[in-house]
Amino acid sequence: MPLLDKSTSLTEVIAQIRDGACVMIGGFGVPGTPFTLIQELVRQGPKNLTLIKNDANEPGMGVDWLLSAGMVRRLITSHVGLNGNAVRMMNAGEIEVEFVAQGILAERIRAAGAGLKGFVSDIGIGTLLAQGKQTVEMDGATYLIEPALEADFALVHAARADTFGNLTYAATARNFNPLMAMAANCTIAEAEIIVPVGGIDPDAIHTPAPFVDHLVALPQELMEVYGVVKR
Protein backbone atom coordinates (compact mmCIF):
# COMPACT_ATOMS: atom_id res chain seq x y z
CA MET A 1 0.00 0.00 0.00
CA PRO A 2 1.62 3.35 -0.95
CA LEU A 3 1.87 6.14 1.63
CA LEU A 4 0.86 9.74 1.02
CA ASP A 5 3.49 12.32 0.09
CA LYS A 6 3.02 15.23 2.53
CA SER A 7 5.52 17.60 0.92
CA THR A 8 4.02 21.02 0.49
CA SER A 9 4.96 24.62 -0.23
CA LEU A 10 6.14 26.80 2.62
CA THR A 11 3.90 29.71 1.61
CA GLU A 12 0.70 27.68 1.35
CA VAL A 13 1.15 25.76 4.55
CA ILE A 14 1.95 28.78 6.72
CA ALA A 15 -1.05 30.65 5.21
CA GLN A 16 -3.27 28.36 7.28
CA ILE A 17 -2.09 30.12 10.47
CA ARG A 18 -4.51 33.00 11.05
CA ASP A 19 -4.94 35.80 13.60
CA GLY A 20 -5.44 34.50 17.15
CA ALA A 21 -3.99 31.04 16.49
CA CYS A 22 -2.18 29.07 19.18
CA VAL A 23 1.17 27.87 17.83
CA MET A 24 3.66 25.52 19.44
CA ILE A 25 7.27 25.95 18.32
CA GLY A 26 9.92 23.30 18.88
CA GLY A 27 13.49 23.98 19.94
CA PHE A 28 15.58 24.58 23.03
CA GLY A 29 17.79 27.53 22.22
CA VAL A 30 18.92 27.23 18.61
CA PRO A 31 18.89 23.42 18.22
CA GLY A 32 15.54 22.23 16.91
CA THR A 33 14.07 25.69 16.33
CA PRO A 34 12.22 25.77 12.96
CA PHE A 35 13.62 29.13 11.83
CA THR A 36 12.43 28.82 8.23
CA LEU A 37 8.79 28.21 9.25
CA ILE A 38 9.01 31.08 11.75
CA GLN A 39 10.50 33.42 9.13
CA GLU A 40 7.61 32.70 6.74
CA LEU A 41 5.11 33.21 9.58
CA VAL A 42 6.65 36.64 10.19
CA ARG A 43 6.43 37.44 6.45
CA GLN A 44 2.71 36.57 6.40
CA GLY A 45 2.12 38.41 9.68
CA PRO A 46 -0.93 37.02 11.51
CA LYS A 47 -1.55 38.86 14.80
CA ASN A 48 -2.59 38.04 18.37
CA LEU A 49 -0.79 34.72 18.39
CA THR A 50 -0.38 32.57 21.46
CA LEU A 51 3.05 30.91 21.35
CA ILE A 52 4.12 27.86 23.30
CA LYS A 53 7.89 27.47 23.30
CA ASN A 54 10.47 26.42 25.86
CA ASP A 55 12.36 29.71 25.56
CA ALA A 56 12.26 32.95 23.58
CA ASN A 57 15.50 32.29 21.67
CA GLU A 58 17.91 35.23 21.72
CA PRO A 59 17.51 38.80 20.42
CA GLY A 60 17.24 38.80 16.63
CA MET A 61 16.56 35.07 16.38
CA GLY A 62 13.47 32.90 15.87
CA VAL A 63 10.78 33.69 18.43
CA ASP A 64 12.25 37.17 18.78
CA TRP A 65 11.29 37.90 15.15
CA LEU A 66 7.64 37.23 16.07
CA LEU A 67 7.87 39.29 19.26
CA SER A 68 9.54 42.24 17.51
CA ALA A 69 6.91 42.17 14.75
CA GLY A 70 4.20 42.62 17.40
CA MET A 71 2.49 39.37 16.42
CA VAL A 72 2.43 37.76 19.87
CA ARG A 73 -0.19 38.37 22.53
CA ARG A 74 0.74 35.58 24.90
CA LEU A 75 3.80 33.38 25.45
CA ILE A 76 3.72 30.13 27.44
CA THR A 77 7.32 29.24 28.24
CA SER A 78 9.76 27.99 30.87
CA HIS A 79 12.46 30.64 30.59
CA VAL A 80 13.19 33.80 28.56
CA GLY A 81 16.46 34.79 30.24
CA LEU A 82 18.58 34.75 27.09
CA ASN A 83 16.29 37.26 25.34
CA GLY A 84 16.40 40.69 26.95
CA ASN A 85 13.88 41.93 24.40
CA ALA A 86 11.30 39.39 25.61
CA VAL A 87 11.97 40.37 29.23
CA ARG A 88 11.49 44.04 28.36
CA MET A 89 8.23 43.36 26.47
CA MET A 90 6.96 41.25 29.37
CA ASN A 91 7.79 43.92 31.95
CA ALA A 92 6.20 46.62 29.76
CA GLY A 93 3.00 44.57 29.46
CA GLU A 94 3.36 44.27 25.66
CA ILE A 95 3.12 40.49 25.91
CA GLU A 96 1.51 38.27 28.50
CA VAL A 97 3.88 35.55 29.75
CA GLU A 98 2.96 32.35 31.58
CA PHE A 99 5.95 30.57 33.13
CA VAL A 100 5.70 26.82 33.49
CA ALA A 101 8.33 24.55 35.07
CA GLN A 102 10.22 23.06 32.15
CA GLY A 103 9.38 19.40 32.68
CA ILE A 104 5.76 20.25 33.48
CA LEU A 105 5.58 22.22 30.23
CA ALA A 106 6.92 19.17 28.37
CA GLU A 107 4.55 16.80 30.14
CA ARG A 108 1.49 19.05 29.61
CA ILE A 109 2.28 19.02 25.89
CA ARG A 110 2.91 15.27 25.93
CA ALA A 111 -0.41 14.71 27.73
CA ALA A 112 -2.32 16.61 25.03
CA GLY A 113 -0.55 14.57 22.38
CA ALA A 114 -1.50 11.38 24.19
CA GLY A 115 -5.18 12.34 24.26
CA LEU A 116 -5.23 13.01 28.01
CA LYS A 117 -6.94 15.91 29.76
CA GLY A 118 -4.06 16.47 32.16
CA PHE A 119 -2.09 14.85 34.96
CA VAL A 120 -1.39 15.10 38.69
CA SER A 121 1.96 16.22 40.12
CA ASP A 122 3.63 17.61 43.26
CA ILE A 123 6.05 19.86 41.35
CA GLY A 124 5.91 23.43 42.65
CA ILE A 125 3.85 22.67 45.77
CA GLY A 126 4.54 25.46 48.27
CA THR A 127 5.74 27.90 45.58
CA LEU A 128 4.28 30.74 43.49
CA LEU A 129 3.81 28.41 40.53
CA ALA A 130 1.20 26.42 42.48
CA GLN A 131 -1.00 29.47 43.02
CA GLY A 132 -4.39 29.35 41.35
CA LYS A 133 -4.03 25.72 40.31
CA GLN A 134 -6.66 23.10 41.01
CA THR A 135 -5.57 20.57 43.62
CA VAL A 136 -6.51 17.03 44.48
CA GLU A 137 -5.92 14.92 47.60
CA MET A 138 -4.29 11.54 46.98
CA ASP A 139 -2.77 9.16 49.54
CA GLY A 140 -3.10 11.82 52.21
CA ALA A 141 -1.16 14.53 50.37
CA THR A 142 -2.08 17.49 48.17
CA TYR A 143 -1.20 17.44 44.47
CA LEU A 144 -1.65 19.88 41.60
CA ILE A 145 -3.77 19.18 38.57
CA GLU A 146 -1.79 20.11 35.46
CA PRO A 147 -4.03 20.54 32.41
CA ALA A 148 -2.92 19.25 29.01
CA LEU A 149 -1.60 21.94 26.65
CA GLU A 150 -2.73 21.67 23.05
CA ALA A 151 -2.41 24.01 20.08
CA ASP A 152 -3.84 24.75 16.65
CA PHE A 153 -0.44 24.33 15.01
CA ALA A 154 2.93 22.83 15.86
CA LEU A 155 6.02 23.99 13.99
CA VAL A 156 8.86 21.50 14.32
CA HIS A 157 12.36 21.04 12.93
CA ALA A 158 13.62 17.62 11.89
CA ALA A 159 17.07 16.57 10.75
CA ARG A 160 15.59 13.99 8.39
CA ALA A 161 12.14 13.05 7.11
CA ASP A 162 10.69 10.70 4.57
CA THR A 163 8.00 11.98 2.22
CA PHE A 164 5.26 10.42 4.37
CA GLY A 165 6.40 12.55 7.35
CA ASN A 166 8.30 10.11 9.53
CA LEU A 167 10.86 12.25 11.37
CA THR A 168 14.21 11.94 13.09
CA TYR A 169 15.97 14.62 15.10
CA ALA A 170 19.67 15.28 15.71
CA ALA A 171 21.26 15.27 19.19
CA THR A 172 19.80 17.91 21.53
CA ALA A 173 17.72 19.36 18.68
CA ARG A 174 15.09 16.76 19.65
CA ASN A 175 13.92 18.49 22.90
CA PHE A 176 10.25 19.60 22.57
CA ASN A 177 9.85 18.72 18.86
CA PRO A 178 8.46 15.16 19.14
CA LEU A 179 6.10 16.22 21.96
CA MET A 180 4.72 19.21 20.07
CA ALA A 181 4.40 17.18 16.87
CA MET A 182 1.85 15.04 18.76
CA ALA A 183 -0.04 17.85 20.51
CA ALA A 184 -1.38 20.14 17.78
CA ASN A 185 -4.36 19.90 15.45
CA CYS A 186 -2.01 20.54 12.55
CA THR A 187 1.69 19.69 12.64
CA ILE A 188 4.04 21.30 10.13
CA ALA A 189 7.57 19.91 9.98
CA GLU A 190 10.57 21.42 8.22
CA ALA A 191 13.31 18.93 7.41
CA GLU A 192 16.94 19.33 6.42
CA ILE A 193 16.86 16.16 4.34
CA ILE A 194 13.78 14.49 2.81
CA VAL A 195 14.21 10.93 1.56
CA PRO A 196 11.75 8.60 -0.22
CA VAL A 197 9.57 6.37 1.96
CA GLY A 198 11.63 3.42 3.12
CA GLY A 199 14.69 5.65 3.42
CA ILE A 200 14.58 5.71 7.22
CA ASP A 201 14.91 2.53 9.27
CA PRO A 202 11.47 2.09 10.95
CA ASP A 203 13.26 1.33 14.23
CA ALA A 204 15.09 4.67 14.09
CA ILE A 205 12.03 6.93 13.62
CA HIS A 206 11.46 9.42 16.47
CA THR A 207 8.10 10.85 15.33
CA PRO A 208 5.82 8.50 13.38
CA ALA A 209 4.24 10.08 10.29
CA PRO A 210 0.57 9.88 11.45
CA PHE A 211 1.40 12.81 13.78
CA VAL A 212 2.71 14.95 10.92
CA ASP A 213 0.37 16.79 8.52
CA HIS A 214 2.69 18.79 6.29
CA LEU A 215 6.33 18.63 5.32
CA VAL A 216 8.53 21.48 4.09
CA ALA A 217 11.96 20.81 2.59
CA LEU A 218 14.74 23.14 3.69
CA PRO A 219 17.26 24.37 1.14
CA GLN A 220 20.56 22.50 1.12
CA GLU A 221 22.30 25.63 2.38
CA LEU A 222 20.69 26.46 5.74
CA MET A 223 20.23 30.05 6.90
CA GLU A 224 23.08 31.28 9.09
CA VAL A 225 20.79 31.39 12.16
CA TYR A 226 20.82 27.57 12.30
CA GLY A 227 24.57 27.56 12.81
CA VAL A 228 26.79 27.68 15.87
CA VAL A 229 26.08 30.86 17.84
CA LYS A 230 29.15 33.05 18.17
CA ARG A 231 29.18 34.64 21.60
Binding site: F28, G29, V30, P31, G32, N54, L82, Q102, G103, L105, A106, E107, I109, R110, A159, A170, A171, T172, A173, R174, N175, F176, N177, P178, L179, H206, V228, V229
Partner: peptide
Protein backbone atom coordinates in the same frame (compact mmCIF):
# COMPACT_ATOMS: atom_id res chain seq x y z
CA UNK B 1 22.82 20.55 17.39
CA UNK B 2 24.64 19.73 20.62
CA UNK B 3 24.33 22.12 23.54
CA UNK B 4 23.72 21.94 27.28
CA UNK B 5 20.80 23.65 29.01
CA UNK B 6 22.86 26.81 29.43
CA UNK B 7 23.48 27.06 25.69
CA UNK B 8 27.14 26.01 25.85
CA UNK B 9 28.42 23.72 23.10
CA UNK B 10 29.32 20.30 24.49
CA UNK B 11 30.33 16.83 23.38
CA UNK B 12 28.60 13.52 23.99
CA UNK B 13 30.62 10.87 25.84
CA UNK B 14 30.77 7.33 24.45
CA UNK B 15 27.63 5.71 25.88
CA UNK B 16 25.78 9.01 26.09
CA UNK B 17 22.10 9.21 25.05
CA UNK B 18 19.81 11.86 23.59
CA UNK B 19 16.11 12.09 24.44
CA UNK B 20 13.16 14.47 24.35
CA UNK B 21 12.24 16.94 27.12
CA UNK B 22 9.51 14.70 28.59
Amino acid sequence: NLIDAGGGYITCAPGGAFFDSA
